[in-house]
Amino acid sequence: MRPFSYTRAETVQDAVIALAADPGAQLLASGTNLVDLMKYDVAHPTAIVDINRLPLKEIEDLPGGGLRIGALASNSAVAYDRRVQERYPLLSSAILAGASPQLRNAATTGGNLLQRTRCFYFYDPSTPCNKREPGSGCSAIGGTNRIHAILGASDKCIATHPSDMCVALAALGATVEIEGPDGRRDLAMTDFHRLPGDQPERDNTLAPGEMVTAIRLEGNHFARHHTYLKLRGRLSYAFALVSVAAAIDIADGEIVDLRVALGGVAHKPWRDTLAEAEFAGQPADEATFRGIAGRLLAAAKGQGGNDFKIPLAEKAIVRALRQAASGTPQDQVVKAVQ
């Protein structure tokens, strides 16, 4: 860790001004990821702007059955909120699949969006890494890449986004509320994170000085047919090798609306809205599920150590859609895959 100045923001405006004023400034919410990265000498903010006092903890009802989740609402608060459990059980389940109870008690909604990759090389400052040090190279390509991306990677970076919550938010079509020097704006969750391309140092599309203030969810028809299926190196407290958030609106055995987002496989929660649209009107059956999986993974490419993720993701997508269709979502306490 390097010495830094510390200030407390009392208003969102304060925070935005402080953030915009200093390119070395970073916002501190829980610190679950930022403090970790600072200790590993990966992040070196020169100024910390503590936003914990901002009034962003609330989970509010929106007209039309939606919810607005403040950026500082803890993962636990969201996962166990009765309205979230009733209206967005997929989100609740995804959150409970991640981290541990004590990390979820601390970690915030906004912080979860901004958490950085768990790539071994990103985390080890002595190795080349384009995300940490642009232009230095990607050590994971040709290296130890069991946990890396099979979709949307570039020759500059094959890191994955580690969140579970974001996968569900992407599937649910959440909106991210952002406050910045130029005022407020909304951004679709699917546009919040980005693919690495030639700029893997950028995880998301936030402009300098912008901060996340809330997540908005619209009313939906996915409370019955959904699941979050997570596969990992042990049965709890581990990042996903592959995860699937699936939600289906089914009428008379046919898919009315379909959402599938993948975690652990790309630089962002992976969702293909075009592919989803293609399967509307199809029967909610095994052949369709296999078709969806094939379509989503058509461009998948392994890196050697993670080749197994392609067939694993394919099977996981089919299984998740089966769970969702049958209305038997994966219970994160139950370790048998349902």
Binding site: Y6, L28, S30, G31, T32, V35, D36, I48, D50, N52, S76, S100, P101, Q102, L103, N105, A106
Partner: peptide, 24 residues
Amino acid sequence: GQCGACTVLIDGERVNACLKLAVS
């Protein structure tokens, strides 16, 4: 934050003390 050995209760909730800046 990888082991839980530092778990304490902050305002009654269990939290990893290692990832909390005391000032915050």
